[in-house]
Simulated assay, not measured.
Amino acid sequence: MRRYTFFDRLIGEADKVLRTLAHDAVSASRASPAEHLPEAGLSAEEQRQISGFMRINHTGEVCAQALYHGQALTARLPTVRQEMEHAAQEEVDHLAWCQQRLNELGASPSVLNPVFYAASFSIGALAGLAGDKWSLGFVAETERQVCEHLQGHLTRLPLNDLRTRAVLAQMHEDEAAHRDMALKAGAATLPEPIQKAMQAMSTVMTGTTYYV
């Protein structure tokens, strides 16, 4: 079996970047939870609001891909690297599902995705360099915040929008599982200032990508 060098892995990461940011370039390994559900009769205002939610969620998945890719690149323990790569694959499903829902709504992903990808990749790589327990701590805290964010969207969706609801509910379940994985693997609790900084970055992301 070939042993990949650090530079081999960098080339692989560049490929992942292009696939993550290119429109409709990723394919889900699982069928969308909304596959067999009917489309709701949405008003123009409801469609605009849901498009904003899904644009936020799509960018969130771009950030998740970047975070996991950065962490996997610098993780020290092979088992931790494998866990990161497995979680990243599930996030690919989420990314594809969000893109599909945006397409159905006639909406586009955020033009700011490359900026947020770069920021998240840098954070992930630095967390990996800090040590696996801190890298896992970033995963646990990120997924905790993502679950809160998804729950907020679920409570604000129109009751008849079963397709979006099914996608977000499955994403919530997967993200909670990723958080549990990180905690069981030995995640450290991040200092409160870092948690607040992550929340501030999330606020910037959601406030901008809802519109663009």
Rank of each mutant, 00 (worst) to 15 (best):
89 Q>A: 15
57 N>S: 06
151 Q>S: 13
204 V>G: 09
4 Y>F: 14
163 R>A: 10
4 Y>Q: 13
91 E>V: 13
97 W>K: 03
205 M>D: 00
154 L>N: 02
147 C>S: 14
112 L>W: 13
12 G>L: 04
187 A>P: 00
69 H>V: 05
58 H>F: 07
90 E>L: 09
29 S>L: 11
94 H>P: 05
126 L>H: 01
90 E>D: 15
80 V>W: 01
88 A>Y: 01
77 L>H: 15
28 A>S: 15
136 L>P: 00
121 F>Y: 14
62 V>W: 05
159 L>I: 08
100 Q>F: 03
103 N>W: 03
162 L>M: 11
187 A>Q: 01
19 R>H: 10
2 R>W: 08
195 Q>E: 14
50 I>R: 00
192 E>D: 09
142 T>R: 13
131 G>Q: 05
67 L>K: 00
205 M>A: 12
66 A>F: 07
163 R>F: 04
59 T>I: 04
123 I>C: 07
56 I>T: 05
148 E>A: 12
189 T>N: 10
99 Q>T: 08
118 A>I: 05
15 D>I: 13
198 M>N: 06
198 M>L: 15
104 E>T: 05
167 V>P: 00
134 W>T: 11
62 V>P: 03
74 T>K: 02
88 A>E: 01
56 I>W: 02
86 H>T: 04
137 G>I: 00
46 E>A: 11
180 D>I: 05
78 P>H: 14
197 A>Y: 02
24 D>N: 12
27 S>R: 15
141 E>F: 02
129 L>H: 05
9 R>L: 15
91 E>L: 12
40 A>V: 04
118 A>V: 12
11 I>Y: 09
194 I>T: 11
66 A>V: 05
4 Y>E: 15
144 R>L: 14
28 A>E: 11
153 H>P: 01
139 V>F: 00
91 E>P: 09
191 P>H: 08
167 V>M: 13
65 Q>M: 13
126 L>G: 02
93 D>L: 08
141 E>C: 08
114 P>F: 03
76 R>V: 06
21 L>C: 13
60 G>R: 01
179 R>G: 03
21 L>S: 08
50 I>K: 02
82 Q>W: 07
79 T>G: 13
115 V>E: 10
88 A>G: 01
6 F>D: 11
129 L>F: 06
9 R>F: 06
118 A>G: 10
82 Q>S: 10
101 R>S: 07
32 S>R: 05
17 V>L: 15
112 L>T: 10
47 Q>C: 07
89 Q>K: 15
67 L>E: 00
123 I>N: 00
66 A>M: 09
122 S>H: 06
181 M>C: 11
